[in-house]
Write a protein that binds this DNA or RNA. Structure first.
Lengths: 84, 84
DNA sequence: TAGATATTTAGACAAATGTCTAAATAATAT
DNA sequence: ATATTATTTAGACATTTGTCTAAATATCTA
């Protein structure tokens, strides 16, 4: 749970999740959507991956990232539990 | 949204929310539940308050904190939106 | 085999964060 | 009034975080 909230605690990473909600994207495509260096985006993707919020698959020289909706359920459960 | 995720990005603060889910508590009672100094807990409560996750009311020399379940809905909405 | 493209790793650095102790503020009780 | 109790504010400090540039790794193409 800690790594998930840590991952969500950044506007850029939340935006990446919103992008991936629409379609899978390569690391480069994701980086192009932001005014941040590719290494920084790569670092953000690593944090999202460690939190299991996204998964990645190598396709030739590209790496395609996609959203992991299953983990999202865990967050929802935790938050809903606050409402009793 | 930023202040909410920031507030949730700490195990101590998440535990405070779980405590307040059960009943309202004074700052001192909350502090007693953790092995952390009172000023630190006071700081955590301030962050939770700024995120509007808790509210506080002065009762004599005590300050009673309670959970704000309405804001919780906003988080749930954002997270559910990730699932399309 | 080179050279170009895609991505990550390494290392540096400033800013933000969580913690502490000491002091300040406010209300209660003797 | 003075002392006690409850809580916050202020300031310091080490750790974590987000960013960058430069270099490394891996794949594709001519």
């Amino acid at each position: 749970m800690d790594s998930i909230f840590k991952a969500l605690n950044d506007e850029t990473r939340r935006s990446i999740l919103e992008l991936l909600r629409q379609k899978d994207m390569t690391a480069g495509e994701i980086a192009d959507a932001f005014d941040i260096s590719k290494p920084s985006i790569s670092h953000h993707l690593d944090i999202l991956k460690r939190a299991d919020l996204v998964s990645s698959e190598k396709k030739g020289q590209f790496i395609v990232y996609s959203l992991n909706t299953t983990i999202v359920d865990d967050i929802i459960k935790w938050i809903i539990s606050l409402k009793k």
